[in-house]
Design a protein around this nucleic acid. Structure first.
Ligand code: NAD
Ligand code: NAD
Lengths: 213, 213
DNA sequence: TTACAATTGTTATAATTTTCACATAATAAT
DNA sequence: ATTATTATGTGAAAATTATAACAATTGTAA
């Protein structure tokens, strides 16, 4: 099989293009050029075209891209032509914020269940959902066919939760704990690490301060 | 001046090394090799040494790195030899979770003030802090010498908040709204975008499913 | 002392990613 | 019809980043 190797940065940008197109579509725009997309999201026009070229030819020379059509393709490419139920483990500050966030739903994600270790939290209500005991994780996620697990527990529990997710057949993990988790190579895992992002800022602010001395 | 161009990926990893070293230090470890660091955080040993080489020579050949010393250097490099007060705009789900998160404090960050547009939220208490009206942003951030602003308002307000931050002399922005913000080139801005991260997962899960047909 | 083992710092090589430039195709104007 | 204009798709070049290999240095043991 032809192995389609796509840079991760390209996938990231596809997601950005896709959301930009969603906005254009809402505003009733029908056609757009790579130049305008580039402008709208802050990359170069060549980059836009190169990115799209990984997946096919979606435009018309001399004209541009049809917004609706391209939007549909980007969603399909990103796997968003289906619903993705999520299982969140951890019903603390972050877990609750995530569970009640409307942002998730916008693009086909849906928080299907929330788990916690703490007996005091189990049974509590978060929006429509009841917090489930972690022991139920394998059964419930299998039943609901959940393929994405979200880790929002305190750091020292994160690896344990990851292990449970691996054993339960969840295929991918979104991890908020600032820890390098060990998972089998065939698990998809991404970390959302605020410290790293903040420290990118402080590094660069510091750099600028040093340069302007 | 010699312009030290460091890849962003290197800075990201420096932050990861730094936190790993913190853990080693807490556990009383005194010496470590690039191999062990690599192992601990999931990169190659050559990568670790190459990354460190951007900033100087911190190790001893045949021996390795002193954990405490290297930790101090990484913190210094990342600009964490000083405190960084943060201003969060938006006291909704996310803003509250961020404000009360202990994770921030760990590495020198401190939520110094929280702002909101909504009059109903202004004056409410979040932990030790009172939610301030957005109109106070320029004055308060200047007084507290805040250089990092965090955007946690609903999408349609995000650009406006960014503008206020720019005008107030805040030098860098951590943005949680899934929107491409327009800011002057000399502003440091990073986005934390859950959708993108989730869509990286769905793309790759989809890819694997396709490959195993 | 000298040889050996360990591990860094660095140079060279390879791989990846981005940018550039332009041939190609579609539309509009003359 | 013909020409001009616009904007895509792509191959080649440039830039960036990662990997690999090894010389240099330190500590240790014979
Ligand atoms: N709050 C944020 O804004 C934020 C942002 C980024 C990352 N994070 C990270 O997300 C994770 C969770 O953060 P949070 O702010 O939601 O923390 P939290 O303390 O509000 O919640 C922690 C979770 O761990 C569970 N837990 C804590 N102590 C436990 C114990 N003794 N036994 C069993 N379970 C226990 C709680 O039940 C809860 O589910 C942390 O790794 C944090 O660093 C948080
Ligand atoms: N909640 C999450 O877990 C989460 C995760 C990632 C990103 N985000 C993003 O963070 C942002 C905030 O999310 P949230 O969940 O905290 O939303 P929220 O609705 O809980 O809070 C929204 C904020 O905007 C303000 N606001 C809302 N409507 C307003 C109005 N009519 N007039 C004035 N102010 C108004 C609110 O006062 C509040 O400060 C969004 O862009 C969201 O996409 C949220």
């Amino acid at each position: 099989m032809k192995t389609l190797r796509v840079p991760e940065a390209t996938v990231t940008r596809m997601s950005i293009y896709s959301r930009f197109l969603e906005r254009l579509d809402r505003n009733g725009m029908t056609t757009i050029s790579s130049n305008e997309i580039a402008d709208g999201v802050g990359v170069s026009p060549a980059q836009v075209r190169k990115d799209l070229a990984y997946f096919g030819e979606f435009g018309t020379r001399g004209v541009g891209y049809n917004v609706q059509t391209l939007l549909k393709y980007t969603l399909k490419i990103l796997g968003l032509n289906q619903a993705w139920p999520l299982a969140i483990v951890g019903s603390g500050n972050l877990g609750q914020a995530l569970s009640t966030s409307r942002g998730f739903n916008a693009r086909g994600f849906r928080v299907a269940c929330v788990f916690d270790y703490d007996a005091k939290r189990v049974g509590k209500r978060i929006g429509q959902l009841l917090v489930q005991p972690i022991a139920q994780f394998p059964e419930l996620t299998r039943k609901e066919n959940i393929r994405i697990g979200v880790i929002a527990v305190r750091n020292s529990l994160a690896q344990e939760v990851a292990n449970i997710m691996v054993q339960s057949g969840v295929q991918s993990i979104l991890n908020f704990a600032p820890i390098t988790l060990r998972v089998p190579a065939d698990m998809e895992i991404r970390n959302v690490d605020l410290s790293i992002t903040l420290e990118l800022l402080t590094f660069n602010v510091g750099l600028k301060a040093a340069q302007s001395l």
